[in-house]
Design a protein around this nucleic acid. Structure first.
Lengths: 346, 346
DNA sequence: TGATATAATGCACACGTGTGCAAACCCGGG
DNA sequence: CCCGGGTTTGCACACGTGTGCATTATATCA
């Protein structure tokens, strides 16, 4: 068994013990057919006994492949991103790759540090899980000449690929569902102004409604910020309209939770007086009262697909540039048919 | 400016252009005093113009330092761990280190893969953020002969160091607070049986109570699992005791939220009829109704301290083996003085 | 001016692994 | 016994960087 010595043992050490050249050891451990079967077995046995571990550093230097990918995130503290990262990391590990994590925290100088580090470490590819659109440093990354895979953030470029869920489809699912419950007066609380995903979700919802001749007028679109506060102020704004919507689609679950709390404070019951729909299916969507109807993105799968696309790119395959996953509607208890009282009030 | 060429430029390329040997370039870029100031400036300028980036791979091979640390977590999807990771990663980046993330998902074969990978990549140190006690592979890690820093998981060993928050202190804070509100009948819902942190929190609470001659009898200790379900079953058990506790300390926030929901179903008002205290201060502790009184651990600081300890170890410093951070009590609305009706009932 | 100390540079090797090419070996057939 | 062909092995170089030591160029002093 391993000698327990902490110093690394190299193929040269093995070569000395086995009485062969280090080249033969290298080939034997790579299971090359150039080595005589008996010699090969003997060398492999000795390597095992000496507790040999190959140096990825030295190997990377000559092969120019490090079996390492760089993962850039805006913040790992976001549970959504964390789950994507889990999908990426597990898939990477299963395929012999490891992941260098770069939390650039949306600070420009930190982004530069990240890019520099990933360059120096010779990563084979880069995955960017950033909620921001058009991250300024993607052009910098592109200069490295290695594949770049974007998660939930489409973009074009020679080395740039993307994996995302279909926000249009998500919005459509919500629209169809609210229609099927009988709603005709539907409002929307947006995310932060810069989020194109917010516009896409709204557009998808509108598309579904238009098939039944229903529209979302501008006055039923309230500005939010993707957080609790924005949801609360958004719902207050919408409830002051006259007539007011009977159902509100919220940019995400945090917005919906803020809306839920504010609506209750005003004295409205959800879903009896008002239906609410969120987006993302965060853990606590199921735990609020009432449990929140929402649209789920398979975050783990998002990460998994991103890594698998990366692997196929490193394998030399081309072709697929844009993978789109379908979201799904999770029906819970925050939606109900509109009350007749509300309908008559119009 | 950079030529935009994707191929790496090496110090040899610079040497050819500058008309010097690669040794001189190496020294110039390291700002060595052995190089004439004029030459140094010229070489540095050429390096900048050629878009030179040093190869951490080649450098690591000769210096045997990779400026990389391995980070082993049970699951990055746990928000608690994710925030610790953020603290680690940011501190690492600020000091020129990068982090290889290993999500071993508590699966033994994956743990082995992690250890092997970190060995091959020649990481300088390893930080383990694992909620499990006595991870089986720590001995394996110890064989590598590099510093190992454990987060929230004390352990002894030649290369093993730890950073943690004081569970005894956390429990004590809760005990003192409930006493100050006037509670004398206090219950506890445990975490999973294997969690030593659960025992420590209980013990700390008991210590505080004993100073006032109050005890927590065995029948007011309910088994939980650290999750919603365990909190619900735990509180149901406690509310069936007679007399029953007027306040319940829960192992963590998820347990407390489960208890909160179950208590409400039974018809009890929190905090009027029952006081509840959680632990961890997860995001949603502030968002449930009523907002949860809880004990906060500074997760970011936990990570930051872990990385700073690691850096000082890599810097050759010894001495500090165990850093203990103090938790703090976050008072919200889930606790109130016991109602006289309850008191009289005893 | 010549000897000597000092500053600046280059040579050569090292780190651990992979690989093209030549050399050595073995085996069988003529 | 010798030669051809296949199998097995070793030599030598490469990858990009760092560094001890020798060497050269320059400055200083007698």
């Amino acid at each position: 068994m391993g000698s327990g010595s902490s110093s690394h043992v190299s193929i040269k050490d093995i070569a000395r013990i086995a009485g062969v050249s280090h080249s033969t050891v290298s080939r034997a451990l790579a299971d090359s057919p150039l080595v005589a079967p008996a010699t090969k077995r003997r060398i492999q046995r000795i390597a095992r006994e000496m507790g040999y571990t190959p140096s990825a550093i030295a190997r990377g230097l000559v092969t120019r492949r490090t079996a390492t990918i760089g993962l850039v995130v805006t913040t790992i503290a976001d549970p959504f991103i964390a789950e994507v990262v889990q999908g990426i990391e597990e898939t990477a590990l299963d395929n012999g790759y490891s992941v260098i994590l770069c939390d650039c925290n949306a600070e420009p100088e930190r982004e530069l540090t990240c890019v520099r580090t990933l360059r120096e470490k010779w990563v084979d590819a880069i995955i960017v899980t950033s909620s921001r659109v058009g991250s300024l440093y993607v052009p910098l990354l592109e200069e490295l000449g290695i594949p770049i895979v974007l998660v939930n953030n489409q973009r074009t470029g020679e080395y740039v690929y993307s994996v995302r869920t279909d926000n249009l489809e998500g919005g459509r699912l919500v629209g169809e569902y609210l229609l099927s419950l009988g709603h005709r007066r539907i409002g929307y609380i947006t995310g932060p102004p810069s989020a194109s995903s917010s516009r896409e979700r709204l557009e998808g919802c509108r598309t579904a409604l238009q098939e039944q001749g229903v529209d979302i007028p501008e006055e039923w679109i309230a500005p939010g910020d993707g957080r609790i506060a924005g949801g609360a102020s958004g719902i207050r704004y919408l409830l002051e309209r006259s007539p007011r919507p009977t159902a509100v689609f919220c940019y995400n679950d945090m917005t919906a939770i803020g809306a839920l709390q504010a609506a209750r404070e005003i004295g409205l019951r959800v879903p009896a007086d008002l239906s609410l729909v969120g987006y993302d299916d965060i853990t606590f969507a199921a735990l609020v009262d009432p449990p929140l109807t929402t649209v789920a993105q398979d975050r783990y799968m998002l990460g998994r697909q991103a890594m698998e696309l990366t692997l196929s790119l490193l394998d030399g395959q081309e072709g697929v540039h844009d993978i789109v996953l379908r979201p799904s509607l999770i029906k819970r208890d925050s939606c109900a048919p509109p009350s007749y009282r509300e309908e008559g009030e119009m």
